[in-house]
C-alpha cells in the first residue's frame, strides 16, 4: 500500500484517476481504517486529503456556509455560525461515534461511505445541501441526495472526490433537527433516523418542510409526502400522527441484527415526528 498526503485537490484527483488498483480517499479515516482492519478493503493507494489547503475550513458563502471535506465533527460542533443556522446538521454529524471519533470523522466521509444509516446524511438531505465534487473533468455541484447509490456505493466517478459541502442560507424563522433510534445512548449505528428542516410563516404555521429518513432504505429517503402533511400546520398531535404514517408508508428497510423491518418502520415515523417538533420549537424560538 502507498500513502500520499496530497497537497492540492488536483494532485489528489490525478492520483486517484491515474491509479489502476484499489484506491481510497482518507479524510477522517473512521470508516476506512475499520474496513482495513477487518480486511474488508485492502487498498493499494490511500490519498490523505487533510493537508489540502481549504479542506479543513468552514467559510461563509452566499449567506450560508461551505464546509471543507476534511472538517471534523468536533470542529463543526465548535462553529457558532453553523450551529445557529443548521443545528440539525450539526447534531446529526455529532452523533457519529464517540468523542474520539468526532475528533476525526467528516461529513463528506460519512456521505461517501454510503451507509444507509450514516447519521450526517439525513439532515444534509433535509437541508438541501450540495456537495462540490472535483474530478478529472472539472468541478460540479451535486445535491447530497444524489451522491449515495446504495449501501457502500456512490454516484461519483473514478477520480472524483467531494471537496466541500455547501449549507445554504436560511430565512430567520427556520430550523432543523435530527433524531436517530439506537438501543444504547451512544456508540451505535442508527436503527432508524430522521432529519427535518422547516421554515415557519409569519403566523407560526409551517411554510415549507423537508423530511429525510435514514436506515430504512438502501439510501436516505426524502419523505416528500411527510413534508407536505406538516406544511401549513402547527404540528398538532393529529398532524404528527399523519406525518409519521406518511413516513412509515415509504420505508423499505431490511431485517438484520440491528432491527426488524417492523421496528425500523415504526421508529422512523416516531423519530420524524419528534424531530419535526424539535425543529418547529427551535424555529419558533428564533421568531
Amino acid at each position: 500500500m502507498q500513502y500520499v498526503a496530497a497537497k492540492t485537490a488536483d494532485e489528489a484527483v490525478a492520483l486517484l484517476a491515474g491509479h489502476s488498483g484499489t484506491a481510497r480517499v482518507l479524510a477522517g479515516g473512521t470508516d476506512l481504517l475499520v474496513q482495513m482492519k477487518s480486511g474488508m478493503v485492502e487498498p493499494d493507494l490511500v490519498v490523505d486529503i487533510k493537508r489540502i489547503a481549504g479542506m479543513r475550513d468552514i467559510t461563509p458563502e452566499a449567506g450560508g456556509f461551505r464546509v471543507g471535506a476534511a472538517v471534523s465533527g468536533a470542529e463543526l460542533g465548535e462553529h457558532a455560525g453553523v450551529c445557529a443556522m443548521w443545528p440539525g446538521v450539526v447534531e446529526g454529524f455529532n452523533l457519529i461515534g464517540s468523542t474520539q471519533v468526532q475528533g476525526r470523522a467528516t461529513m463528506a466521509g460519512n456521505l461517501c461511505n454510503a451507509s444507509p444509516a450514516g447519521d450526517a446524511v439525513p439532515s444534509l438531505v433535509a437541508a438541501a445541501a450540495v456537495a462540490r465534487v472535483q474530478g478529472p473533468n472539472g468541478t460540479r455541484d451535486v445535491p447530497i441526495r444524489d451522491i449515495p447509490a446504495g449501501p457502500g456505493r456512490t454516484t461519483l466517478s473514478k477520480g472524483e472526490i467531494v471537496t466541500s459541502i455547501f449549507l445554504p442560507a436560511r430565512p430567520a424563522r427556520a430550523a432543523d433537527a435530527y433524531l436517530r433510534f439506537i438501543p444504547r445512548t451512544e456508540m451505535d449505528i442508527a436503527v432508524a433516523s430522521a432529519g427535518v428542516s422547516l421554515v415557519l410563516a409569519a403566523d407560526g404555521t409551517v411554510e415549507s418542510a423537508r423530511v429525510a429518513l435514514g436506515a430504512v432504505a438502501p439510501t436516505v429517503l426524502l419523505a416528500e409526502e411527510a413534508g407536505k402533511v406538516i406544511t401549513g400546520t402547527r404540528l398538532d398531535d393529529e398532524t404528527l400522527a399523519r406525518m409519521a404514517a406518511a413516513c412509515e408508508a415509504i420505508c423499505k428497510p431490511i431485517d438484520d441484527k440491528r432491527g426488524t423491518i417492523e421496528f425500523r418502520t415504526r421508529t422512523a415515523g416516531v423519530m420524524a415526528k419528534r424531530a419535526a417538533r424539535i425543529a418547529y420549537d427551535r424555529a419558533g424560538a428564533k421568531a
Partner: peptide
C-alpha cells in the same frame, strides 16, 4: 487507545502513523 493529536482527542487505532 485514546490519545490527543494536535489537541484533539482521537482513537490512535483510527489514525495512520503516517498522518
Amino acid at each position: 487507545c485514546s490519545v490527543t493529536v494536535n489537541g484533539r482527542l482521537v482513537c490512535s487505532c483510527l489514525v495512520l502513523g503516517a498522518e
